[in-house]
Amino acid sequence: MTGNDIGSLAYLALLGAALIAYYLAANRADLGRTLRQAMLWGLIFVGVAAAAGLWSGVRDSVVPRQSYVAEGGGRIEAPLRADGHYHLTLGINGTDIDFIVDTGASEIVLSRSDARRAGLSPDELAYVGQARTANGTTPIAGVMLDEVTLGPVTDRNVRASVNGGEMAGSLLGMSYLDRFARIEIADDRLILER
């Protein structure tokens, strides 16, 4: 927990105490009823906090993630997410990076922050290329990824780009998808087979 987190927590505790004190003072004539209501709201708050804390464990059953089925070279399935996109998590140089599958992208395009997490130095790259996107033209730098792993499938020395502009996440484009013998979208699932 950082200093900012502690400060925010202290602020919220102080604000909560002030609100409780005001509520008790305003309703002191019927204190028993007021305390029951306060306990009910406290239980609701604890329930919401518990649900938020447990969400990461429940998320995988509510929002399924990609799965791997070893059949020869490997089969990967990814469900359609609520945002209308297929997402895959690939190991890039040993670091898990989340990608949006983008058949409109020519190659793997890493955001600057994902490139940094994968061991690249985006501030030292030469952004001499250009990519045409829906938001206009953006500078890109070509890189070579030592290792790209998706489930049971590992590729070495894979070409990719690092986007010189701001990106919310990384894109998995056609140069990587073309490495699969079969790409199918059926029943809201993306299926890749080698």
Rank of each mutant, 00 (worst) to 15 (best):
D178A: 08
A50Y: 14
R33C: 02
V63E: 12
L120V: 01
I108Q: 14
A126K: 10
S8M: 10
Q66S: 11
V153R: 09
I44R: 04
G74R: 00
R189Q: 13
A25G: 05
L40Y: 04
G91A: 05
G53R: 10
R116V: 03
A160K: 11
V58C: 02
R81L: 05
A181W: 02
S121E: 14
N4T: 09
P79K: 07
Q37K: 08
L145T: 07
A78N: 00
L125W: 04
I183P: 00
H87Y: 09
Y11V: 10
D188L: 06
I183T: 07
G72W: 03
G165K: 04
Q130W: 01
D114C: 09
I185C: 01
S61P: 00
V58M: 13
R156Y: 15
A50N: 13
V62I: 14
L14P: 00
R156S: 15
Y127G: 10
Y22R: 10
S175E: 11
A126D: 14
R36P: 01
E71M: 05
A126I: 08
L31Y: 03
L80A: 07
G7T: 09
G74A: 03
G169R: 12
D123T: 08
V58F: 11
L80M: 09
M167C: 03
M39E: 03
G3L: 13
D187V: 00
R116Q: 13
G142K: 12
G173L: 01
L12E: 15
G57P: 04
H87L: 12
S170F: 10
G57E: 09
R116P: 05
V101S: 06
Y11P: 01
S8I: 05
A49R: 08
N93Q: 04
L12W: 11
G74H: 06
G16I: 00
A51L: 15
S56D: 14
A131D: 02
E147D: 11
Y22V: 10
Y86W: 06
V62R: 05
P152D: 08
A168T: 14
E77L: 12
R75L: 11
P79R: 06
V58I: 14
N93M: 06
M39G: 09
G16Q: 11
V158E: 10
P139R: 05
V46C: 15
V48D: 03
A141E: 04
L120H: 11
A70W: 05
M167W: 01
V63G: 01
E147G: 02
A131N: 03
W55C: 00
R182S: 10
A168E: 13
T89Y: 04
V62G: 07
I92K: 09
V153K: 06
S67P: 06
I108P: 14
F99R: 06
L43G: 09
A10V: 10
P79T: 05
N157H: 15
I100A: 11
F99D: 01
D96N: 14
R75K: 12
L125Q: 07
L150C: 12
N157Q: 15
A115D: 07
R59M: 01
